[in-house]
Structure formats: C-alpha cells, structure tokens
Simulated assay, not measured.
Amino acid sequence: MADDFITSFAAVEHRAYTARFHQDLVQAVERLKGRKVSAAMCPGGPGGKNRPRVAEARVFVALCSQAYYADEGCGADWAVFEHRLDLEPPQFRPSDPPARVLVRWRWQPASPPSGLPLAPVLSGEITDSYACKGLYGIIREEGGVRSQAYRDAVDRIAAAVCHGGEHSPPEVSVGELPELAVPFPPRASGEQAGDLDQPPAPQADVPQPRKAADDADRPRVFVSYAHEEDEDVHKKRVADLGERLRDHGIGVRLDTFAHREGPQNWPWWMREQYNKADCVLVIVSPAYKRRAEHEEVPGKGNGVGFEANYLMREVHRNRDTWHERILLVSFPEHGSAYIPDYLVGPTLYTVDPETGEGDLPELVDYIKSKAP
C-alpha cells in the first residue's frame, strides 16, 4: 500500500525535531482527511533504501535547507519523484506540482541549486517567522512546537499535503526506474553536510552536571514506563534516558537501576519512589496508554496499572498543579497519540535518549528548578 506522504530530510538533521514535525504533520493531515493516513520518514544518506517508498508515495514532503541540497540521498529521492512527475502528459503537468510539498526547514532558507524550485512562503508575508527562519528556527527560538507560529505552519503544510494527494503522479516500479541523474551538485572536497546552514548545537543549552559536592539525590525523579513487547528495545531506551539525566546531576529512580540493588518488594518500592520524587516522568508509549487506561489483557502490565492509580489520584486531588510534578516524556517514535486520556493537556517533552536531541535541555532545566 502506497504511503499518503513521505517526509524527506537530510541525514544530518536534528532527528528528534524532524520526527516531531513528521508526527505533527501526520496528525494534522488526519484531522483534515478524517481518517488514518500512512506516512514514512525518509532520511537521506548513502544507499537507495528510500527508493521503494518514493516510487509509490502519493505526496513528497521535502525539508529544504542547505544540508538537504548537499545530501546525495535526498537528491536521489528527489530524482525518483521528479521522474514520476515527468510521466504526466505535458499538457497536464503543472509547473509547480502540488504533490511535491517543499518546507522551509532551517533558518533563512537556502537557495536551491539552479533550476530547482524554492520552498514557498506560506502566509504570503516574506517577513514572518516561517519565511525568515524556517520551522527549525521557530522550534529553536520562538516557543518550540507549542508556539502558534509552528502550529499555523504545520496546518498550512497539512492542507498542501491533502491537496497534493489529489494530484499524485503515476506510481512506478523500482525495477523499472532508469538511471537517474541526481539534481543536487556534489559537495566541494572536504565540505561536510553538517557544516551547512548549521544552527547552534542543541546540546549547548543543556545545564552542566552538578558538582560532586552538591546533594546527589536531589532533584529526584521517578520514571514510570511500560515494558513494550519489542525485545527490550524500549526498556533500553528508557534506561539510556535515565543515564542521561543522572549525568546532569538528577537522582533517577528506575526499576532497571533498582534491579542492580537486589530483590525488591515492587509494590512497596513503586509507592516509596512515587511519593518521594520531586517529579514523576511518564514515558508515553502504546503499551503504557493501554495499561494506564486499564485496557490491557488481565494480568499483564500490572506495574503500570499500579502506578496509574497514583497518577489518577494526584490529578484528581491537585487539578490545577499536578502537571508541575507529573511530566510527560515521549521518544520520537511515539508521541502525543499515546498519552493516557487523563493526562492529556500539559507539555510533552520529546527526547531521543540515544543522542540527547530534542527537548532534553528544557526537561533538565525544569527538573533542576524543583531542587530544594
């Protein structure tokens, strides 16, 4: 089954931010279409791993930047979709095909290589935030994914995707694709994609770890999460996040850490950690939502169900302030769709636990503000 759209982006891009944009775009398109959609993220880089999806996707969404135009993999993806556009009879071929949606991504958008189109200004105002900075600039400088500028841009892009889906070019078989010229010029010798259009490193704002002389146990967080059925992949990513928080001087209470200390009376342990924590981190995921809402099969995921009772009690008792202690965290592959219903509303911190990209600086800052 062909994807409704794919998101094509440079391999060097900030993966957590591109994943969050893709997720938000999926949700916006679903709202407009009134149905679930199929979509995929297609990073550039070496190899032709994206070709099968590009050959069939109804809409091609490109996150344009200097890094994008310097990525040979992005150029190869562009060439495949361009080939499909060229299969349209000339009399029906628009000069600006709606099925190719160009997004201004990084800062002031780069001029594309000669002959390629420029990502349009969405509002018509060449001085607005999106026109001048791109979505990445809005995320980094103007309130992030919760800002009105970001939401407006995503909604307009979603409308373009829906319109583009009505004008999808013919699908092709990967085996039938001819040898295609990459439309982006190769980088100069020694030039790295990561040097192009490079914003300040996201990690620059992360608070430095506290000194050993400081109280190593405060602020203290308890991590509530579900063991997904994925051969412990999610469990390891949660542990990676815990280690990152520890590296920044935060006392982390996590079951995988407690296992190292020997046998535990787990209900008692969960109750004690929950009550003593300055903040409770809820790691949202498919299994967490099912179990927190007591929709899991009986006898499975009892730990999350136990913790959910404490969460619901706190939400009920502290209706105006519970979100100051219960913090929602998502990995890029999940997102707001997996927040338990009774926790919907507050800030969702998106963090890639392996790289530290995303909202880790803001999360660390806030948790440290809770230290006594």
Rank of each mutant, 00 (worst) to 15 (best):
E357H: 07
P267K: 09
G115V: 01
V315C: 06
R244H: 11
Q148L: 13
V29C: 08
Y338G: 03
P298Y: 12
P89Y: 08
G249T: 04
I326T: 08
P298F: 15
S147A: 09
A239Y: 10
L343P: 04
R220C: 13
Y349E: 06
G358S: 09
H163R: 06
D4K: 00
E176C: 04
R244G: 05
Y366S: 13
H22P: 07
Q66A: 14
E228L: 08
R31K: 07
P353Q: 10
L87I: 07
G143I: 03
K276F: 07
G301H: 04
D128Y: 05
K289F: 10
V304P: 06
R93Y: 04
A70F: 01
R104Y: 02
G335E: 05
Y150P: 03
H294D: 14
W105E: 06
Q23C: 12
I250S: 01
E56V: 00
A201L: 14
R100S: 07
A212C: 11
V154E: 12
A226R: 08
I126Y: 10
G335K: 09
P353L: 12
P183I: 04
F92E: 14
D4S: 07
C64Y: 00
G143C: 10
R53W: 13
P170G: 00
G194N: 08
D341R: 15
R156N: 11
G164A: 02
P117E: 03
D215R: 06
V182L: 00
I6P: 07
N318L: 14
A131G: 00
E324A: 13
M1P: 01
P332L: 08
V282K: 13
T321D: 05
H22Q: 10
R319S: 10
E141A: 03
E261P: 01
G175D: 05
A201Y: 14
P361V: 11
V233Y: 14
T347V: 15
V174Q: 13
V329T: 07
K33G: 15
G144A: 11
F306D: 04
F92V: 11
C279H: 12
A158I: 00
P267Q: 04
V223I: 15
D152H: 05
H334M: 11
Q203G: 07
L328F: 14
D214F: 06
G249N: 07
Y225W: 14
A337T: 09
A70E: 05
N309A: 13
V329A: 08
D197K: 02
R220Q: 12
D197N: 09
V252G: 03
Y366E: 11
V351N: 13
L32S: 14
R106S: 13
S38E: 10
Q273D: 03
P298K: 05
A188L: 13
G44V: 05
R35N: 15
D205F: 12
N50Q: 10
L122Q: 02
Y342H: 15
H323R: 14
R151V: 11
P209T: 01
V154G: 08
K370R: 15
F222Y: 15
A79G: 00
C74S: 03
G194Q: 12
A337G: 10
S285N: 12
H14F: 10
E296G: 12
A10R: 05
A40V: 06
S336H: 14
G47F: 09
G299L: 03
C64P: 00
T256P: 01
D96E: 07
